[in-house]
Amino acid sequence: MHIPDGFLSTPVWLTMNAISVPAVGVLARRAHSQLDDSRIPLLGVMGAFVFAAQMINFPVGAGTSGHLVGGALLACTLGPAAATVVMTAILAVQALVFQDGGVLSLGANVLNMAVLGVLAGYLPYHFWGAGRLRKFSFFAGGVLSVLVSAALTLSQLLISGIPMRTGVLAISAGLFLISALLEGLITVAVMGALEKLNPNWIHKPMSDGRLGMGLLASAAVLLAVVGVVVASAAPDGLESLAEQIGLADKATVLFSTPLADYEANFLNSDWLRKAAAGMAGLMLIFGVCILCGRMISRRGSA
């Protein structure tokens, strides 16, 4: 699910690059300060590992199979900042050498998979990694990482004006859910095997297994994911709700009275509404992840 060039509308890819370039810069600096130089070859080789690992098929049944995506696995072994750097490098190589994903849309792909996907994949492990729910946290991380990446990709395409019927949307949402569950199962199985081989390869979780915070954070991410897709698929939904309640008339009056016709038209433009709805959702996810990142880093420095 790497977005090629030509799919995203200009405001969307510009915004995504504007968000993901500084985000990767900050995380790269963090990764660099946490690791000594000896780990840099490790990060590169781990990127090659994720590439190669996609050749190993996991049977799902009914003759189909899936493969590892790797965001959560990398986050739980190398730590979230280093995992972001590795995923960014993977996406860059795929875009440049294999023409898998575009260069202008690299910012969007990096944000979806390397930044927010990895952070969402790390979230459950951060809260539950040391407690009784350790195994479940691997599973939840795999599921969340794929769900977040897929939902963001889908909503960026929708905001860019790629039309999708509700049926198509439902089918792709179903497929994403299945692949998210599969990623969760793969992550938990591989992490279990890795733990038996050498527990030192696994990143130490910072917290002592607080159930409530983890649930809250995971629920917030899930809610934001659903919200982003719904908002970008049907920004008119909010409006019809408002209409039913009877807010719409008041709102139009409120909007159009102080503004001249020109501005009112501007506000009414379909594209702007879609974009605004999508952006708001995206900001929500970004905010959640930033907050969690803050908490992680504070815990790390304490």
Binding site: R29, H32, L43, G44, G47, V86, T88, A89, V97
Partner: peptide, 10 residues
């Protein structure tokens, strides 16, 4: 860091 990692990866 990113360019180095890309180089090793490739």
């Amino acid at each position: 860091v990113v360019t180095l990692v890309v180089q090793f990866l490739y």
